[in-house]
Design a binder for these strands. Structure first.
Lengths: 229, 229
DNA sequence: CCAAAAGTGTTGAGAGTACACCCATGG
DNA sequence: CCATGGGTGTACTCTCAACACTTTTGG
């Protein structure tokens, strides 16, 4: 990338905070930097915006190149502009977040996978630049968002169980929820549909599988609601 | 400003959407451009970020210089990056919103006031660049925000009446609200305090005056709530 | 048959909604 | 004394919150 510096806008970059949900925890996707500064450190996937390129396209491009993650809806979370955030010269970066379902992607397809890894949010290594700040802002936005919009569709497998969805909410909200009230509330919104299948994987009593009703899900996301338990 | 081009970052600017509430309508503060491109047109107050300057500081500086409005909390609403939004070269702009109480400011103190004016949101003239888009985004954010956070403190006079506050909500939400239910709801949150004074200005029955309880107001803003009537 | 997680209903309290009349003032 | 907007209360409905036992499976 750096060998094409003349193609890029040298003072504007993008960074992506990709959240995934697996093993009952929230995880963030990090890549090992292969260029200076901070080569060798784990960092958010990011890079400079090219001349003639839209910011969102830059974020998608960078993400695909560095991690193999494609077709993701990236949401802007703000500009990070501390004067010395980039040590060599002044760079403004536009932060983005996305939620994805880890199982849908083979990370960095075809390239060395050791350089791309999921990290549980409580075990994120020290990050270069202001990347810790960016992750913190992304997480805060996610926590606010969950109260007013449905989540899960982007981050859970296509078929999922209610206990899975509940754990996702618990992880994001950071508190335990009452099983019965959670089910009642979620089901009353009708954005998920029960299937006639059960989850085989569990070694306990199998749970019923559900899928998202994408139309109703998107409508609720537009309209907003209130989730308080 | 343009005679100091060497001091500025030529591809990053800020623009401010300043909402005020007066004469029972939402208004936006516009300035008449005195430089090319689009000299002579009404536009959002905005300008380039200087080298070594933070974005938020740039927004505050530009706003103070162009309109006389100071001491305002500006909130970032996103980056606008269409390729041809600025006709001469590529410029990314960071949009900001603020709510202010018009009566608190003498516009462009000491300078020609004809160049700074409030426009009711339904009577905004054609704007240059992508400024209409920026206003639209700002308005949309305001409409979402009002459902989850209290508003009024920033945009109403220090002493105000309940009917005034209700009209503000009606204007922002775009619908009529029931008087009794509005009062019940607002008063039950305890972020405003009744005074023992009445509003003399009205030519009808005078209404009681209230003030905001700043602490409770800020706490509610942090915590969020749900406003549905 | 035991351990572990899934599934299921009811009740009481509090908030939301709908709705109509009297009051204070200026002209 | 009249026109205009300010101010007030109640009853019904619905949603929220708290809470415990039975069911299904694998080992």
């Amino acid at each position: 990338m750096s060998h094409k510096l003349r193609e890029v806008i040298r003072n504007i970059s993008v960074d992506c905070v990709i959240f995934g949900y697996e093993h009952s925890t929230l995880e963030v996707l990090l890549v090992k930097r292969d260029v200076e500064p901070y080569a060798g450190m784990w960092a958010l996937p990011g890079g400079f915006v090219k001349k003639g390129e839209r910011i969102e396209d830059a974020a998608k491009r960078v993400l695909a190149q560095m991690t193999g993650v494609t077709d993701t809806y990236l949401e802007e979370i703000g500009v990070f502009d501390e004067l010395d955030r980039y040590p060599l010269w002044r760079v403004f970066t536009v932060g983005h977040v996305a939620l994805i379902s880890p199982e849908h992607y083979s990370l960095h397809a075809g390239v060395d996978t050791r350089d791309v890894q999921w990290f549980p949010i409580e075990k994120i290594p020290p990050l270069p630049f202001d990347h810790s700040k960016i992750v913190a802002v992304a997480l805060e936005k996610l926590r606010k968002r969950v109260r007013y919009q449905p989540i899960g569709f982007e981050i859970l497998p296509e078929k999922f169980t209610l206990p899975q969805l509940q754990r996702l909410y618990e992880v994001v909200l950071g508190k335990k929820l009452d099983k019965r009230n959670f089910r009642k509330k979620i089901l009353s919104m009708h954005f998920i549909q029960k299937l006639n299948e059960k989850d085989k994987n569990g070694i306990r009593r199998p749970a019923y599988l559900y899928t998202f009703d994408k139309k109703k899900y998107e409508k609720l996301k537009e309209k907003g609601f209130v989730f308080e338990l």
